[in-house]
Amino acid sequence: MDLDSLYQEIILDHYKNPHHQGLREPYEAEVHHVNPTCGDEITMRVHLSRDGGEPVVADVSYDAEGCSISQAATSVMTDLVIGKTVPEALAVHEEFLTLMQGRGTVEPDEEVLEDAIAFAGVAKFPARVKCALLSWMAWKDATSQVLGAEALRTDRATADAETKEQR
């Protein structure tokens, strides 16, 4: 069993020195995700900014408890998504998901995944894949909550405007 392919140096580095840790203001959505089998937990806040165009991931902050894989995956994820537009970040998420679900057969693209290529070995340990995905699922959930709320507000504004026009 190739333990070193699972616990790559990059993963252990992020585990010991996680990036973007802590819960910060401002944020538009906060989520709490749990891995029910092992008890790993994460509270995550997402702050999106908008300068006219696509929404940008301005900040992702978190308070998490879990194993080296889940902690390192969270740290790497924040590095990857902060500063990207939401569609860009979602594309990285898709790439990472494909890698994780590939059972070790997918060749990771370093251009897209950067430090996250270190998780290629995790895909060979099915029991640990959910550890690597916990924070990504939390981020996706929080982001869709922000966008959903915004979409709702926009819809209502449009609906209100339409109602007014009818009067």
């Binding site: 699972l6 092992c38 879990g66 194993c67 080296s68 894989i69 340990f125 550890c131």
Partner: peptide
Amino acid sequence: VHPHDVSQVLDS
């Protein structure tokens, strides 16, 4: 060392 990591190394 997180319990998951302990059990992973023991399993190896």
